[in-house]
Design a protein around this nucleic acid. Sequence first.
DNA 1: CACAGAAGTGAATATTTATTCGCTTATCTT
DNA 2: AAGATAAGCGAATAAATATTCACTTCTGTG
Lengths: 190, 190
Amino acid sequence: MKLKDDRKVELIFEAALKLVAQKGLSGITMGDISREAGIATGTLYVYFTGKDELINALFAASRANSVQVAFRGYELTTPFKLGFRTVWMNILRYKLQHFEEVVFLEQCYHSPYITEETRERARELAVPFYDLIERGQQEMLIKTADTGLLLTFMMGAINELVKQTHYSNETLSKKKIDLTFDLCWDALKA
Amino acid sequence: MKLKDDRKVELIFEAALKLVAQKGLSGITMGDISREAGIATGTLYVYFTGKDELINALFAASRANSVQVAFRGYELTTPFKLGFRTVWMNILRYKLQHFEEVVFLEQCYHSPYITEETRERARELAVPFYDLIERGQQEMLIKTADTGLLLTFMMGAINELVKQTHYSNETLSKKKIDLTFDLCWDALKA
DNA sequence: CACAGAAGTGAATATTTATTCGCTTATCTT
DNA sequence: AAGATAAGCGAATAAATATTCACTTCTGTG
């Protein structure tokens, strides 16, 4: 017998992301996805029970990806500011390179597709970021304010920068990136 | 003869905003909108030629609203930091009170509904914000970096704060608001 | 190699949703 | 107050879209 093809799920995800970045979640159909992925519409239903499950699975995967990459190269032993910078740059780099996921995730938060369970799992993934900020606070390097608030501020700035960069389709220079990090650091530092 | 009822357009807009904040742009139908607005589906077509026009009109109106309110109480004669603070608070207050518009606008940017023309008009509305930042730069109070970048950073932080506040459904205390302004000011100040 | 069983197909069907239309109701004009 | 004209209605229709299904094509297993 023939086995399921993991690569095909990848193909489907890539197609869906591309289309959502182009036309938004509201402008995407199962037909579009299958055409873009180069497979038959019926095949989508071999891998997913329906549109809802497809979107939820893609949401979970996208969310996990972006978090997984963030702490690459970060160790508790590295000095805080350097470690924070590493994480910050990881996030920015990832989001610039995976703009489609940024858009997709954003659109999903207020969509009828994402179930409460999927949302809850997404929230759990944020824990390491809270830990990071709290470490900075313990070392008296970061303002002693609501951790969630500081995190929100930082992520918001990155997200908006990524979107802005994409819309104005200029490449973000090293200089601009460093500057934005400085903005962020100046905001959060004690 | 009977005349068109301006109030009805308001009703339609309110209904659409409410639904989009609840279920996203992708989960909204003309039937839903009319039911929520308490009018017949056909009546929607008296006021708008179709769904596309309805969404574009709402987008334009929402965008205009949020900008219009921003400079209330701001004068070129007021000292910069105070004026900046006024504008910043105006924006935050408006977005907190009109969360539905925040969500709606965000969802629209990557939707197939919004035409290039509507987008272009939306961009023009940002000019006063550029002027504000540039004034701060001339007075040596704001970092001399790309104006768009600084603006992006500031708006991103506000947006994310508003969203975060809403999701965690706590009311944002005066203290937290002031703190966030300080974060923002520390980031942008020269 | 044979064949079992699952993947893969895309046209057919079911479902959802936008839009139209014949009709009723309201209100402006004279 | 009467007529004209457009708003308002919601069931009917058209269009778009999700999902199924009868069929074909693979490929792992014995």
